[in-house]
Design a protein around this nucleic acid. Structure first.
Lengths: 232, 232
DNA sequence: CCGATGAGAGAGCACTGCTCTCGTCGAGGA
DNA sequence: TCCTCGACGAGAGCAGTGCTCTCTCATCGG
């Protein structure tokens, strides 16, 4: 491992500082991030930023990538902190961690799961980190199957094309997972995302002051749907 | 009813035309609507738009209001077109109508349910139209209760504060609706929104080509959770 | 030590939302 | 019928944006 030159280290520091300042602007001003404002905050001129990021969208992409990883790390850490065989506890921990991260970083969450920025297409680098939360959720189901604590739902009538799609997804994660169970896991993930988005984008607050309880109840409902056992 | 003056009629026509052109721009360029571009398309100068909308945000608000009403109308029409006692049929019709409207008007859907435009606060006029879809969904539950076709879920252990919140919401819609059932209805609404958003914001297409089947299966799953009877 | 390279500054372009002013023209009242 | 007031559109202008180009200077590698 060769020691990086001074220039390289300074450059890495600048990259970090730009992203930090940009993240701060994101949290206050929302998604329409101003490159010039970031540069101004750093005592630089806007054109200097282009030495580090070829365009504003690239800066956004970097922020999105880091946000995906931060969310994924938070979710995985929450899962790790619970005993492996406490399936329902893991489920709730993961859901709460995702919500907590979103509430703590609303602008970044909006960047990840809000309406796509027009004219901006997320590069392929993002699909990996983006799948970490749902993979954790499905991992709980897999562990439940493996230890026999989770009995898969009765094999309901799935249309063949859908069954094949689900089987292919399962093959990439945990081969042999029953399609109906995977579908329910995805329902849980969709529900989790919908819950957080509703809460964050302000379509629920008015008439539902006790949001923690509501969130826990709704995620518990999905845990029931999936069939996670009640007590560890 | 007094006949509106020529000037008033011309003004109303201009308002409509501006909104129409703006909607067209919305569908192509996304949420960052350019007032100047709209004016250009109408052969006007940008400042002239300000005779009709005091700011860009007000134009956006008008579009949002109309979009809420269009979605609400589509959903209510779908509900009306099904026999009242076919609860599950109504549920699916409403869900499909919402999805179809969203797929047909992605930019407007993003305006309604995507990340909030920074610095823009939706005025109170929007809460009414915004609640039309969930009210339709809950109406299905209410009809099911009234006709005895829907048996409410066992009264699960709801924390008291949550039960009170739900009771208050129920009081404003259908007094006496069991809180646990209302909660499941809201879960269905959250799920529907999450499904559409995932599909529209491109976080699902890659690995799930048969989206119609997936959507129907997921909404059927929520119909099961709510307890809607299988056949009419 | 010296040339190549990276970094920052500054000017400039096309664009944005928005404000202000200035003619013009139509509708309603005297 | 005339006249006044108000609505309307045009145009210039301001501050801000992303981005490009050029110029200068410090740093690094050979």
């Amino acid at each position: 491992m060769v020691a990086p030159s001074l220039r390289a280290r300074v450059r890495a520091g600048m990259l970090d500082e730009i992203k930090t300042v940009a993240r701060r602007h994101l949290d206050t001003d929302g998604a329409n991030l101003s490159l010039r404002a970031v540069a101004r905050d750093m005592g630089m001129v806007s054109s200097a930023i282009y030495r580090y990021f070829p365009s504003r969208d690239d800066l956004l992409t970097a922020l999105i990538l880091e946000a995906y990883d931060a969310l994924g790390e938070a979710v995985e850490a929450a899962d790790r902190a619970v005993a492996r065989d406490d399936l329902r506890g893991r489920w709730h921990a993961v859901c709460r961690a995702a919500r907590a991260w979103a509430l703590a970083h609303p602008a970044e969450y909006a960047l990840l799961y809000g309406s796509p920025v027009p004219g901006y297409a997320a590069p392929d680098d993002t699909v990996g980190p983006a799948q970490r939360p749902p993979i954790v959720l499905v991992g709980i189901l897999h562990d439940g199957l493996a230890t026999g604590r989770l009995t898969p739902p009765p094999d309901e009538e799935l249309p063949d094309p859908l069954r094949e799609d689900l089987a292919e997804i399962a093959a990439g994660l945990y081969p042999g997972m029953p399609e109906a169970l995977l579908a329910r896991g995805m329902a849980g993930w969709t529900q989790l995302f919908g819950l957080i988005s509703f809460e964050l984008f302000g379509r629920i607050n008015r008439s539902l002051p006790h949001r923690d309880e509501y969130f826990d109840h709704q995620t518990a409902l999905m845990a029931d749907v999936i069939g996670l056992p009640r007590s560890p």
